[in-house]
Design a protein around this nucleic acid. Structure first.
Lengths: 339, 339
DNA sequence: ATACTAAATGAAAACGATTTCATGAGTTGT
DNA sequence: ACAACTCATGAAATCGTTTTCATTTAGTAT
């Protein structure tokens, strides 16, 4: 049942440990007859190679770390799944780090890659989770690292992003095209670059349409449903209520819709609501939620593929790829009310 | 930046590798003056202990594996978070396995614990993910293992469960108390023990109330939203439509509600809907969803704690703990329609 | 001063794999 | 029959820790 090492197998098969190792990792190097003998011994003894022994020697762990701020978030969960599919196909295991935006946790997971416990790292938080040499010159002065979704402000880092600014502009332009002029925003926390980009897009779209920006229309949430509830309550208290609200996440939009329902506002007749993400529940809401779709699966897949390329040494230049978003129009947005 | 081993530190600090090791793991064994010298050297060199070396020697990995069928599921995501919090506090890292009910994947992650890459395993699927000696006698003939949520039919396994049968009975009894007699069920896949238990509870509650069970009222889904949509469509086609539907997951309930909305049924005036889980979106639906609340955080925490106790050798008997559920009454259920 | 204990340290032996290097056994070509 | 191969294999070094065991040094009791 328990601890059977390569030597036991070697003894059983009447060969050396070296041959057993070869039989398992490079079978072409060993004679057919001995190979079958070894394989039988492996089976008989129930031998499982100890990964630590191997890793110690090869300096490869077969692990990748994924650092995420919040796995309970639907957006991230979808990404994780794609990552894991891709990693598994390539023979890697995923060490998942849910950091809840706590720096100590980020470091904990970051250390795994600096200490050799993982061969690469996928970073979905806006910080590199380990100390770096600040006068480094290029991306290969770091361990294999890919930064996704929340952009780290550093040009020497590989990235997989969506164009948050353009996404926000598409959202706001959609509202403008419906005749809205009083367009509020429920944004995310300022420390997330995605929020900052979307905010820029929001403002630029308004500017382009000649609408003056009113700071009272910009409320900060935390991307979660509850903060959407609170933010919407604030907006309802304004003298000049907005006729449309662009929420920087579907979750906040769902919270906002809840508040509107509670106070008997009709969506979209009284107030239009837009989300961002297109989580699976967006199309199941009542009304269904108009939103900007993020290609979650693509983000996960491309991030992992880039990391794999880095780990294999196939990618020699620093890359940043931007994936397309999509405006998904559903029921929660409509023409500006006439009254 | 890179590979600095304990020897380098030793040289810098003018001590032996042994002392460095002691300084880091059992500082009380080393003289104060040398300790500070070593610590300085550690800092100067940027030394990070290589986990493989240590693990190889100590036979402890500091990892636990969590095998889950679907991390995109809100229920599971909440559990994972609690697990990770608890694991981290105890100094363990979590290797997350999203198996999507594929046996090969389960084995992949199961092997991690048999091969020593992890010290224990949390199993949320209804199978042990590695080959076992079938004539084993007790739970300690396995590596540290805790089975949660989906019960593995084996008495010699540690478990953390909720009482699915009683939960289902509570749900159905709630509907019965509202006067419903034609109560349908949208269940999960038959290979999940949770579904089977809930089905037993559903039937028993009906029996107890003297309501005869009609198989046409029992539809099988896959716990996901889409299957709730399809299942509800089937129910609507019945000549004698049910007046209430008990869905074995909130996701399926949300799908079912969507179908009802599409065909202009009023919830709960025409048809009452019940869910199971109490995911965060349940209270944000319109109408808000009546459901059976699973204590997700408790499940995660208790599972991990049990595993920790097993790994430390503190738990010497096979345990099964059952956590309480809670009936959460919201808007989606109401009195049976009179017409 | 002598013997004895306690504290601090180092040398060296693990842990379990992989891989280099050397060697022996067969082939083939001359 | 001998050189020059290839193929299959084993011995041994190696990866980076931890930990046992022995040794040194200092301190204490006699």
């Amino acid at each position: 049942m328990a601890k059977v090492s390569i030597k036991e197998v070697a003894k059983q098969a009447r060969v050396s440990a070296a041959t057993v190792s070869r039989a398992l990792s490079t079978p072409k190097l060993v004679n057919d007859k001995t190979l079958t003998r070894v394989l039988k011994a492996v089976k008989d003894t129930g031998y499982k190679p100890n990964r630590f022994g191997a890793s110690l020697r090869t300096q490869k762990s077969g692990n990748v770390v994924v650092v995420m701020p919040d796995i309970t978030n639907q957006v991230n969960a979808g990404i994780i799944r794609a990552i894991e599919n891709e990693a598994m196909q390539a023979g890697y295991s995923v060490l998942l780090g849910d950091t809840q935006n706590i720096e100590a946790r980020e470091s904990h997971y970051g250390d795994m890659v600096t200490s050799g416990q993982a061969d690469g790292i996928l970073v979905f938080t806006p910080r590199i989770p380990f100390p770096v040499d600040e006068n480094r010159q290029a991306f290969h002065d770091l361990p294999p690292l890919v930064n996704s979704c929340e952009e780290i402000p550093d040009d020497n880092i590989n990235k997989v992003l969506i164009d948050n600014k353009a996404g926000a502009m598409a959202a706001v332009n959609h509202l403008i095209s419906l005749g809205h002029k009083r367009i509020a925003a429920i944004k995310g926390p300022s420390f997330t670059p995605s929020t900052e980009s979307r905010l820029v897009g929001y403002k630029e779209a308004l500017n382009d349409a000649g609408i003056v920006i009113d700071d009272r229309y910009i409320i900060t949430g935390d991307y979660g449903t509850d903060s959407g509830v609170v933010a919407m309550e604030k907006l309802l208290r304004l003298k000049n209520r907005p006729t449309a609200v662009f929420c920087f996440s579907d979750d906040m939009a769902i919270g906002a819709m809840n508040t509107l329902r509670e106070y008997d506002f009709k969506i979209p007749e009284d107030i239009s609501i837009m989300g961002f993400d297109d989580i699976s529940y967006a199309k199941l809401m009542s009304p269904t939620l108009t939103t900007i779709k993020q290609p979650l699966e693509d983000i996960g897949r491309e991030s992992m593929r880039m990391l794999l390329a880095l780990m294999k040494g196939e990618q020699t230049t620093c890359k940043s790829i931007t994936l397309p978003f999509e405006l998904v129009i559903r029921q929660s947005t409509g023409p500006v009310p006439t009254s």
